[in-house]
Design a binder for these strands. Structure first.
Length: 551
RNA sequence: GCGCUCGUAGCUCAGUUGGAUAGAGCGAUAGCCUCCUAAGCUGUAGGCCGCAGGUUCGAUUCCUGCCGGGCGCACCA
């Protein structure tokens, strides 16, 4: 935010003149209470000891200096235990509109990420069945996080890891194969573990229709063929669901391909080089315990096959080899026990601790009219993502998923999400945008024309406390995005948008724009609203939610 | 049993990485359209921030210990 920068620069100069060092814990942040001005800093409290004077006095001194030095600072004083509160002039805040116009779609972007190369991996559901709502939440969070990090100046690539090599795939093949045998009227004995969804039967039936001799194949070949077909079909469905949900993965990364190209050996070598692997009881182990895990883990089992952990390590090793500085994984919260293990692997690969982050996604409780909807995969009665999207729409679903901290459980009420009412926050925000666009359209109809580029003089009519509240909120957008990116927490953006929409609706109720009875004021307010609409649109874009022209 | 995580208004949740008198929505309740979109706005009520210690100028936030909920503890993925 311009205000933060202005204050930071000025304060730094003052500290230098006073011969004081800039304390690392210095905070410059918007005041919670408007009475405390626009921004406040705790610098005086941190420096009181060093400067040998009481914090109140020091804050007073800083305040006086700021007033002398910055023409944009209208008021500055000491308050409370030693805060220095600063209020900027109205003219300063009005210029925010010009900033928005100049940056347009890029408003809110920052260089916080400094171009760091990030690989964001998300969803990565096994291709053994359609995506359900839980995957949907991970998809929404992952996709929006990618958008957010890009805004914050990171170079982000996105990836979906396909577990197409392990036991789950064999089980999928077996499940379809057995269904096919059953459909062909052959005797079938069902194992304890297999996939029971309707879609398995559909695939088996389609295969049987295409080739009635399928059941005559030798077991191994039949199962292999079933597996291939089922995986392709399911993966196609997953891609279609994600695309419908406006979720994009730039690369689909195959576990099988990784294993076949020797990625596992490369990773094992890397771990071995740092001395963390050993053989015991016919198996190949990774000494994760000394790296913070509960116990050591097996990489290659005594029967010679690889564990899931082994190929996953190889995958992460490969990501680093491809030149990414930072890996972010989005996992279901039920995998949180897996984090220390993976962290151990990162350490053993001699990568810095902050080069790997996991964002955990908690359970989604799907409700209908307050009553839980069963989501058991085994029983085959789960609610698919596609079904939910059909029912509530992409915008409502995305906003719902993104409105809460991702690692706390989410109640998703289908009826509520479907409602076009104030209970449904997505419409509250979208309505704010649509309202502004309606006013701008109406203005054009009336022949009130706002130039594409407005001047500072034109904004002079913005002088009420509601004008200032909106301007300050708009100005805080960049900081909000940067903080959200830093915390890997997209929900901050949703909250910001709800707040901005709230201010807009209040403003709209209190101040007339076209009927202001004063052309200069009308134009100034139109310019302000247009800037607000731009920010709403930019924010909604981060969430992957549309910004409608009318509702 | 061990580990992770959460505990904030009647309900669902925020809380800007330790700041000043703890916020929002819903619900309850009292109001607001001759006026640019009422899918909106305004007011009121509602709190031992799970409990007890500690760290310091200052704790809902950090540390420790309890209490209570969720999850995880495989040569599964």
């Amino acid at each position: 935010m311009r205000a933060t920068e202005t204050l930071r620069t000025a304060l730094a100069a003052i500290l230098k003149e006073e011969g004081l060092a800039w304390p690392a814990k210095t905070a410059i942040e918007p005041s919670r209470d408007p009475k405390h001005g626009d921004l406040s800093t705790n610098a005086a409290m941190l420096l009181a000891k060093e400067a040998k004077c009481n914090p109140r006095e020091l804050a007073r001194k800083f305040a006086d200096r700021l007033l002398e030095r910055c023409p944009d600072v209208e008021k500055a004083d000491a308050a409370g235990p030693g805060f220095c509160n600063v209020t900027f002039s109205q003219a300063f805040w009005r210029r925010t509109v010009l900033d928005v116009e100049a940056a347009a779609g890029a408003y809110g972007s920052s260089g916080a990420g400094a171009g760091r190369k990030v690989l964001l991996e998300y969803v990565s559901a096994n291709p053994t069945g359609p995506l359900h709502v839980g995957h949907g939440r991970g998809a929404a969070v992952g996709d929006s996080l990618a958008r957010l990090l890009r805004k914050a100046g990171y170079a982000v690539d996105t990836e979906y890891y396909i577990n197409d090599a392990g036991r789950q795939m064999r089980l999928l093949g077996l499940s379809v194969w057995l269904r096919a045998l059953e459909l062909a009227g052959r005797p079938v004995s069902w194992p304890e573990d297999y996939y029971r969804g309707e879609y398995i039967i559909d695939i088996a039936r389609a295969m049987l229709d295409a080739d009635p001799h399928l059941p005559d194949l030798p077991e191994t070949e039949g199962q292999e063929r079933c597996c291939q077909r089922a995986m392709n079909e399911i993966l196609t469905g997953i891609k279609a669901d994600l695309s419908e949900f406006r979720v994009e993965h730039q690369r689909w990364f195959s576990e099988k391909t990784l294993v076949e190209s020797g990625g596992v050996d490369a990773a094992f070598n890397a771990l071995g080089r740092s001395g963390y692997t050993y053989g015991k009881e016919n198996a190949f182990w990774f000494a994760t315990e000394q790296l913070g895990d509960d116990k050591d883990r097996v990489l290659k089992k005594s029967d010679g096959s690889l564990t899931y952990f082994a190929t996953d390590i190889a995958y992460h090793h490969d990501k680093f080899e491809r030149g990414y500085d930072r890996l972010i994984d989005i996992w279901g919260a039920d995998h949180h026990g897996y984090v220390p293990r993976m962290r151990a692997a990162i350490t053993a690969m001699e990568r810095p601790r902050d080069s790997f982050d996991v964002v955990l996604i908690q359970l989604v409780n799907l409700l209908r009219d307050g009553k839980p909807v069963s989501m058991s995969t085994r029983a085959g009665t789960f609610e698919t993502l596609a079904g939910v999207l059909r029912e509530v729409g992409v915008d409502a679903a995305r906003f719902m998923f993104l409105s809460r901290k991702s690692d706390s459980p989410l109640d998703f009420d289908l009826e509520l999400a479907k409602q076009r009412s104030l209970d449904n926050p997505v419409y509250y925000v979208q309505y704010a945008h649509a309202r502004i666009r309606a006013v701008l359209r109406r203005a054009a109809e009336r022949g009130v024309s706002l130039p594409d580029a407005v001047s500072e003089e034109m904004l002079a009519g913005l002088d009420t406390s509601e004008d200032m509240a909106l301007l300050r909120k708009v100005a805080a957008f960049e900081d909000t995005l940067a903080a959200a990116a830093q915390a890997l927490a997209v929900h901050h953006v949703s909250h910001y948008l709800s707040e901005l929409a709230g201010l807009l609706h209040s403003y709209y109720a209190k101040h007339q724009v076209l009927l202001a009875g004063d052309t200069a004021r009308t134009l100034a307010r139109l310019a302000l609203l247009r800037a607000v609409a731009q920010v709403l649109r930019n924010g909604l874009e981060v969430l992957g939610v549309s910004a409608p022209e009318s509702m």
